[in-house]
């Protein structure tokens, strides 16, 4: 019996920020269940694994195999399943990030283990094992009961605070048998200097009110001053003013940052579906009737081309 936490590594060999969230979450869950918290690392990693013990994990299993050099959901699933079987894991924890979304369902089918994807809180482990997740695109929650002996949870990014304590994790290597990956990676395009949108704590987002891609400089300045990621609404992505990966909403990405600052976005229900889990929503719009104000915590009714540069200055003053 143990909680096994998947420690996700990016292609540069660094531990993803979402992994610190799942380590904290998995360690707390393990304490709640009275079982050990253990991690598993598959990809080549540059970082010091024992140091991850400060997030509460006691032991980290490392699998080194040439078939794991790049992410392939099928091969990674096989490796994790073998580690889970060898170590007697009873709960598997992933981030509900791009890799977690590919791995957790495969493992659910392979291990006949009930899956709750997009968890937003620790499970209730009293009489049953029930996990709260976000449903209806952030408009509701569902408590889902997992009825199988092995359980799998994917945790929504930015929905659980990282906690750092003391501790060093023991490491152990695990031998597994793997086929060669069927998916071959040709190349990886990453905007390496920027904060990944799904992991960002602060997000500045622009809509049609920006009037054109040439005006994005003022948003970039504000995002830089805040150290925030950039996002946009669907019309902006459809018009190719900004890349698709910045689109948030029903059919784009769903995010839950601490601050979502929406500029020139009316706040259609499809847009809100992607951002309504944000902790604080600020809306800047010249139309006082914009529906977004109803979903916002703070707002400014005004011309964004005047308000945004002033905001940037005020943020810079605050940060000195």
């Amino acid at each position: 019996m143990s909680v096994l936490i998947f420690i996700d590594i990016n292609d540069e060999g660094s531990v993803k920020k979402t992994s610190f969230e799942v380590l904290t979450y998995g360690a707390k869950l393990a304490r709640q269940l009275g079982v050990p918290a253990e991690g598993v690392v598959l990809a080549p990693v540059k970082e010091d694994l024992p140091a991850l013990g400060k997030y509460g994990v006691q032991k980290i299993y490392q699998v080194q195999h040439e078939a794991l050099a790049h992410f392939d959901a099928q091969v990674y699933t096989s490796a994790i399943a073998q580690v889970a079987e060898k170590t007697g894991a009873t709960v598997l924890v992933f981030s509900n990030n791009t890799d977690g979304k590919a791995l957790a369902p495969r493992l659910s089918a392979r291990l006949k283990a009930g899956l709750v994807s997009g968890a937003v809180a620790l499970p209730d482990t009293g009489d049953a094992f029930t996990v709260k997740k976000s449903v209806f695109s952030g408009k509701a929650f569902a408590d889902i009961k997992i009825t199988t002996p092995i359980k799998i949870i994917t945790l929504n990014p930015n929905s659980f605070s990282i906690e750092v304590g003391e501790g060093t994790a023991e490491t152990a290597s695990v031998e597994v048998t793997l086929d060669a990956p069927k998916v071959k990676i040709l190349n990886v395009n990453r905007q390496s200097s920027e904060v990944p949108l799904a992991e960002a704590e602060l997000v500045v987002s622009g809509g049609r009110g920006m009037k054109g891609p040439e005006n994005w400089g003022i948003l970039e300045d504000l995002a830089k001053a805040l150290n925030a990621a950039l996002a946009c609404s669907r019309p902006v992505a459809d018009a190719h003013w900004r890349p698709h990966n910045e689109h948030v909403g029903q059919t784009g990405g769903a995010i839950a940052p601490n601050l979502y600052l929406a500029v020139g976005i009316s706040g259609a229900i499809q847009h809100l579906a992607g951002v309504n889990r944000s902790k604080v929503i600020v809306v800047v719009n010249k139309d006082p009737e914009a529906p977004f104000f109803k979903a916002a915590d703070y707002g400014i009714v005004g011309d964004l081309f005047e308000v945004v540069p002033k905001l940037t200055e005020a943020v810079k003053q605050l940060k000195g």
Binding site: S108, A128, F141, A142, Y298
Partner: peptide, 29 residues
């Protein structure tokens, strides 16, 4: 069947937007 819905719930309603004057953006910050 590996999972079942125990209950649905709705998020708590927002307290309402706090508007800041466009000439006073320092207040928002």
């Amino acid at each position: 069947t590996l999972t079942q819905v125990a209950a649905f719930s709705l998020p708590p309603a927002k307290a309402g937007v706090k508007l800041v004057d466009a000439d006073n953006v320092q207040e928002l910050v």
